[in-house]
Design a protein around this nucleic acid. Structure first.
Lengths: 155, 155
DNA sequence: CACAAACAGGACTAAAACAGTACAGTATCT
DNA sequence: AGATACTGTACTGTTTTAGTCCTGTTTGTG
């Protein structure tokens, strides 16, 4: 099936919600407006902050915001933030966890698949996942969203 | 990680072995020459025959061979034969197994991702996975392999 | 300074998926 | 008749995933 895990799926829902709202939002707030359970939202946001896609502010009035301009975020970044490098099989060169690697007739060949998949995901942006993306000019959409999130990025 | 399961990984090893050898090979034969355990090879081949990528012959001197010209087989076909349709999330439209589908803000959006991934896999052929593909002219490689497997396809 | 809001990190458990195996059945050739 | 080889299905132990919870740290407010 080549599935992405559920957490990543939710992450997109939550990120789109964050995209849609104001610059800095608390986990509780996002949980409520996205409908995803708070502990789960919290787990996702922590991970996204750890990998640098989001930035966080602690304390009262804290929350999460984008660490960089959200219109430049690709699905590759989102998926890799939550699942690690895109690798269709476990046999990644240099991973060293396959003791047959040097004798394996497939060595390096799945890599062509990994590269192809990765490239295709590079071309899908996070903001393309927004439902309103269907009805708006992509340029306008970017402008509106970037403007809305600029405060969080400067903080 | 966006992983393909292990069975699919082995399937490529076995299929490449079949590609490399003669037209019709038994499961036991393929298990031996590929190094993958027989029950596993058997499971893979059965599934590939069921989905029509391979064809099988029972009885003494039976075995498996390609059901169509092997140079036209893409990784999409191999992966889909073993794992079902490529769907990055469980929310495929029309699958009907998500009761929130009609209210889900993401509805239909992962589809862009599915399509992108699928297209990228369409462009990787099974014969590109052969180690010797690196050193040979693709045209020559196709010709040699197609000729070798023609008998199975006519049978 | 005490308290409340909010993030950080890690640990734990129940459920689901997967891998691998085994077995009983059917077809085919000699 | 008997050996070879595919077919279908069922079972089981292991691994992964999902989801939750708890304890600690940071920060703003009265």
């Amino acid at each position: 099936m080549l599935k992405v895990n559920k957490l990543t799926d939710y992450a997109v829902v939550v990120l789109c919600d964050l995209l849609r709202g104001q610059a800095l939002r608390s986990a509780a707030d996002l949980a409520q407006s996205s409908g995803v359970p708070l502990p789960t939202v919290s787990k996702i946001l922590k991970q996204l902050a750890r990998t640098g896609l989001l930035q966080s502010a602690r304390g009262v009035n804290g929350g999460y915001g984008f660490a960089k301009s959200p219109d430049g975020i690709s699905m590759t970044e989102v998926i890799e933030a939550l699942e690690g490098p895109i690798a269709v099989t476990g046999c990644i060169e240099d991973s060293g966890d396959c003791e047959h690697l040097h004798e394996c007739p497939m060595s390096g060949h799945w890599n062509a698949v990994n590269v192809a998949v990765r490239r295709s995901l590079d071309e899908v942006r996070l903001i393309d996942m927004l439902p309103e993306a269907r009805f708006m000019d992509p340029e306008d959409l970017s402008r509106v969203i970037v403007a809305r999130h600029a405060p969080a990025m400067q903080a």
